[in-house]
Design a protein around this nucleic acid. Structure first.
Lengths: 186, 186
DNA sequence: GCTATTATTTATCATAGGATAATTTTGCTG
DNA sequence: CAGCAAAATTATCCTATGATAAATAATAGC
């Protein structure tokens, strides 16, 4: 996925603003299993996924909670670091070798203060993330584990090919054993 | 809570921008039980709570799911309407007689395109809402029903005084019967 | 390709929370 | 302040999911 496509799908901005934004973005690549963002660290960068898939998880003694998967085109950020410059909850781990676009938050904040189009682009970025997480909260309170699994599979069928089931189980809020039961019943 | 306090707690903007924003805000009052926002309607306004308490719920056949409470100083909006101009998931119902600040989304969008300070204020509004909902997703996957109840009580002790338990149970993702059990065990 | 490690499945048993219904308490409204 | 309706509690029984352990399958490193 190109950086232009990623920027455009968030919010359309004039070419000049897009150029300014892109001047602050560089490409990086990391191997599978790399930990890109660390909880308990104030992260200086945000990323967009050119190629690959990642998971965000809240590390806990004995059990990590996977609470997000990101695929091509999606934004990776530690919300706490990005918004409040505080340590976040989450580690982000690459589940495949990944190519990423990297953007320094400090540069982005400068742009927010200089360019109204970029400020509105940043607003849309947050608003769209908010919509995603909101629909997830509602479906998690509305649906049984089996229904959540079915919904995930129909919304993101590639996940099951690309992501170990134990992480999907954690994302669904159940144990791998229970997920196995659910899958068998189908 | 004054409108100045509410605006400032989201993000500090120059007086001239604040004046422009406030010119588009009016005060309204509605009685307890009034339905302020309706699911399946594209809402034209957002609100800030001057006085009172409200709940947002996703109406379902047989069981409504309460997924948010708003108190003084908080923002009431249908995220779907606000971001995408589409019908939302939620009704918002007043749980007390309320005094509200009302702001037309169409006017706000004009300001976003004219005033970079207001654009960044709107960005912060979304980002802060995102942080709130994110911390809730994580705690809901991390904690048992009893722990979530305890956490809610210590974060928002006034809720239990102001909100019927059946709504708190729904918010916690359990039945009123089960909440009653949890409270008894203490 | 072989072996060690890790993931997944299967089985058994335990438990938190759901469903239902009856009872008590609270809170409106005339 | 009486009487009704709604909310909350309590009790009983039930079910989905958890915990644990063992067996199998998949994966990765040599």
């Amino acid at each position: 996925m190109t950086i232009d496509e990623i920027i455009d799908q968030i919010y359309n901005i004039p070419e000049s603003s897009k150029t300014a934004l892109k001047e602050n973005i560089s490409e990086v690549a990391y191997p599978k299993n790399h930990i890109l963002l660390k909880a308990d660290k104030i992260e200086a960068n945000i990323y967009f996924i050119k190629k690959g898939i990642v998971r965000a998880f809240a590390p806990q003694k004995e059990k990590d909670i996977t609470f997000w998967f990101g695929e091509e085109g999606e934004t990776i950020l530690s919300m706490k670091s990005y918004v409040e410059r505080k340590k976040g909850y989450e580690n982000v781990e690459l589940l495949e070798d990944c190519e990423l676009y990297e953007l320094k938050v400090a540069h982005l904040n400068n742009l927010y203060n200089q360019d109204i189009h970029i400020a509105n682009w940043g607003r849309k970025l947050a608003e769209k993330e908010l919509l995603k997480i909101e629909s997830r909260v509602i479906s998690s309170e509305l649906l049984s584990a089996k229904e959540r699994y079915d919904a995930l599979m129909s919304n993101s069928p590639s996940l099951i090919q690309r992501v170990p089931l134990k992480y999907i189980a954690s994302y669904l809020g159940i144990t791998p054993v229970s997920l196995s039961r659910i899958r068998k019943e189908k």
